[in-house]
Design a protein around this nucleic acid. Structure first.
Length: 106
DNA sequence: CTTATGACTTTCA
DNA sequence: CTGAAAGCCATAA
């Protein structure tokens, strides 16, 4: 199983209505310093996986949606999160999630 | 093998 | 929590 697969498997463990940070996912697969790779894996994800993996629940440490993916912009991600009963706040053109309330704690 | 790069994190303030 | 600077790591070329 390559690095990406580990990331995907871990991301799929995030329960609905909760969010996780990149560092958290990285730590769960045994590489606490590979947070960037998690994001890289998301960006490199094939179209098919996008529908099977809850990538929208993965955000950065501040609870900020830092996606640069143009096909799935922050607006789209925020929409999905709100659909899962997760509060998303819009601040200065960027979306934020309340980590204190929605961060996944395994 | 060496560089470059990036959906990030930690540290200091 | 926010902002700026430095650091890590896997992948691609």
């Amino acid at each position: 199983m390559n690095f990406y697969e580990q990331v995907y498997q871990t991301v799929k463990k995030v329960p609905r209505g909760k969010v996780a940070t990149y560092g958290q996912i990285a730590a769960l697969i045994g590489s606490p310093r590979s947070a960037r790779m998690v994001g890289w894996a998301m960006h490199a994800m094939d179209g098919g996986k996008l529908e099977k993996i809850p990538w929208q629940r993965i955000i950065n440490r501040k609870g900020h949606i830092s996606t640069t993916c143009e096909t799935h912009p922050a607006m789209e991600q925020a929409n999905i999160l709100q659909r899962e009963k997760i509060k998303v706040s819009l601040k200065d053109g960027n979306y934020f999630v309340d980590l204190k309330e929605y961060l996944w704690r395994p």
